[in-house]
Design a protein around this nucleic acid. Structure first.
Lengths: 211, 211
DNA sequence: GCCAAACCTTGACAGTGTCAAGATTCGGCT
DNA sequence: AGCCGAATCTTGACACTGTCAAGGTTTGGC
């Protein structure tokens, strides 16, 4: 309805959305401010009314990625309440799946496109919320005896590192095909968790629809 | 001596070296073909005699990064021959340390700046050599009983993922300061390995000069 | 109904990757 | 020795990029 309005109304979010789309279609290399502006239907310098520079837009897109991830993970933690090993596995698989479905968005969220100098409070906030959630699951797993006792924050970081590393190496094509032919991504993820933890494998952890 | 020669002599390697330097000084954002050319003392289009495009130069720089990593890791595997858990820990720490010392080079090596379409044989080669080395260490650890038995390739990928993830999250500043104030990077790395494996901690694994 | 602020456009600039055309030098052949 | 093709490098140009300044348009509050 707002086709020919001078004022867009919600340009900021439209730009973030356009950025996410371009990222999905063309990857990081295709992401330019001018293309984002064009896709949102505004002139090439319009983004500067909402973002200080490209870095700022990228930070917003990263934050959006983190939010999407958090939503999925939070839903899974809820669904498997009371079954800590299952929570751990499903959260890990969701993480890997997020990376696979939209590698560019995953990369831009985690691959330090955000320079350390500037600090983006909303990004830090959602990042901490994510880690808190993982820490919760880790604590539940420790109570359930499937994770060695120890400081929960360091353990959470260890688990997160493992899953993050697997997701990264997978989307960078660093995992050999001979291995990938033998094991699905889900099997690999569960294998890794089984290596890291003392999870006992149960059949329902391998649904027919493997990722 | 070759200051004013029209033909540089070894421009290809000079360009790679210049790229590595710029990466260390200015990070990924500062890496442009023209700056690399200028630093090597040639005109802006000279790189095109040796590289098809920017992607090609980046691939060469990535390959160089992988080579440097391999050299260090190989030396450590040699030095601690016969002590598999120590091998594992030192290799992991070297990996993390490589990322810390030159984050931009680490990122460009592993963070998918190489598009999957093109394949760079030398890059794939050194990447496989690296994994083989890790697999060796993993097999030794399995024999020593500090790693669960299982397919060595999948186990190696698990270990590699864990360490790679930790290194990535560290250089992206995703590890909270409250944790980093309590544990050094080396302690974190060993903690992670201890989580992942059944390594027994020994005092010599924590030298005074922690990373 | 007016005015300041928010929002957007236009135009410009330096820097970028890339290519075409040409200059320079090297290596091998006679 | 001298020539010639190939390798190497330079120059010039093009489209595209991030960014800023100046100005136009709209909105919301008084």
């Amino acid at each position: 309805m707002n086709e020919h309005k001078y004022h867009h109304g919600d340009l900021k979010n439209a730009l973030i959305g356009a950025g996410v789309d371009i990222l999905a279609e063309e990857g990081l290399g295709g992401l330019s401010l001018r293309k984002v502006a064009a896709r949102a239907g505004v002139s090439h310098a319009a983004p500067y009314a909402h973002f200080a520079d490209k870095q700022d837009l990228i930070a917003a897109i990263s934050t959006e990625g983190y939010h999407r991830l958090y939503e999925r993970i939070e839903a899974l933690v809820q669904r498997y309440q009371g079954d800590p090993p299952r929570q751990l596995i499903e959260v890990a698989c969701a993480y890997v799946e997020f990376a696979r479905k939209d590698p560019a968005h995953f990369r831009i969220t985690f691959s330090g496109v955000i320079e350390t100098e500037k600090n983006y409070p909303t990004f830090v906030e959602i990042s901490q919320k994510n880690l808190q959630l993982v820490t919760q699951v880790v604590e539940a797993c420790q109570s359930a005896g499937i994770l060695k006792p120890g400081p929960a924050d360091a353990t959470a970081v260890s688990i997160w590192s493992s899953v993050h590393g697997l997701a990264s190496l997978l989307i960078e094509g660093q995992i050999s095909h001979t291995l990938l032919d033998r094991m699905s991504r889900r099997e690999l993820t569960v294998f890794l968790l089984n290596q890291v933890t003392l999870v006992e494998l149960r059949p329902e952890m391998f649904p027919a629809k493997a990722i």
